[in-house]
Each structure stands twice: as C-alpha cells, then as structure tokens.
Amino acid sequence: MTIVNSTALPPFQRVFDEHAQAVLTFLVGAVGASEAEDCFQETMVSALRAYPRLGDASNLRAWLFTIARRKAIDAHRGRARRPTPVSDPDPGSAFDSHPDIDEGLWDHVRSLPSKQRKAVVLRFAGDRSYPEIAAAMSTTQDSARQSVHQGLKKLRRELR
C-alpha cells in the first residue's frame, strides 16, 4: 500500500512560477534595481537548496519572503564590507518567524524618523543615487548617506 503524503510539496518550478515576480518586486524595493537580481538569484537558489526539508507547504510565499529579506539585509551589509557566506536558512524556523514580511518591512520603514524614512525610501524604493537623494532632501551627500545608514541600522535591529 502506498502512503500518500497529503502535504506533498509541489514541484519547485511551480513555486518559482507563482512567486518569483512578487519576490523580485520586493527586492527591487528593498535593495534597488541594480542589486535586486543578485539577491533574487541567491534567494531562489537558497530556497531550492532547502526546499526538500520544508515540512509545510501551506505558505510558500511567506517562506520565500523570509529568505529574500535575509538576502536583502546581507546585501546592505555587503556594501560596507565583503559579504560573509550565509548558511542555508532553516526552513522550519524561517517559516514561523516572519509570515508577512512583505507588508511588515515597509511598516517598519514607515515608522522610521522622517529624515531616515525619506532617505531609505529614495535609496531603495526609488533606487536614487546619493547626489540625487541629497538634492531631493536639500541636504549634503554625507548627510543623506548618514540618514540611510542610520535608517538601515534601525531596521536591522527591529527585524532581527
């Protein structure tokens, strides 16, 4: 007798087809258009690697966004120093921790102090360069950089 697992995982191709666009859109917002593809590819490869160990297929999108968020944060860190290899996410706990990160991250961004919020949104949602951000905020480039930096630091603390 064959035992049929009722929560059998769909082929990874289907997961990719259904959620890739949403993950990419999130990453363009989170790290900017130029770095989004790298983060996207890393997210999907990590997900593929961990996929057979994922016990629960009921919220695959949330699981993918959890991985994407980590890759986005790694990318921010990577700007300051060389990226360190990140181990594969543990599918179980990753799944539980941030079920609605796509909404959640921007909620956190919205609650940043105004200068930081503007700078972070211009930088990552708008993909603006620092001279452009400085111009948009009528401030210096150093100050724009500083605001983005502080905003990200705060986000990282809150999202940990």
Partner: peptide, 26 residues
C-alpha cells in the same frame, strides 16, 4: 505572472551549476 525568460534561465543555470536540479522536466 512570472518573471522574464532571461531571469528564469539564469536561475536554472545557477541551480544546475550547484547540482540542485534533481529532476529535469521537458
């Protein structure tokens, strides 16, 4: 809705290079 073809192909290349395609479909 899915992402553009080139992006999907680059993903497949990476997955293949890392030996992560256990079952290939056509």
């Amino acid at each position: 809705m899915t992402v553009d073809q080139a992006l999907s192909e680059r993903f497949l290349e990476r997955a293949e290079a890392r030996g992560l395609v256990d079952v290939a479909v056509a």
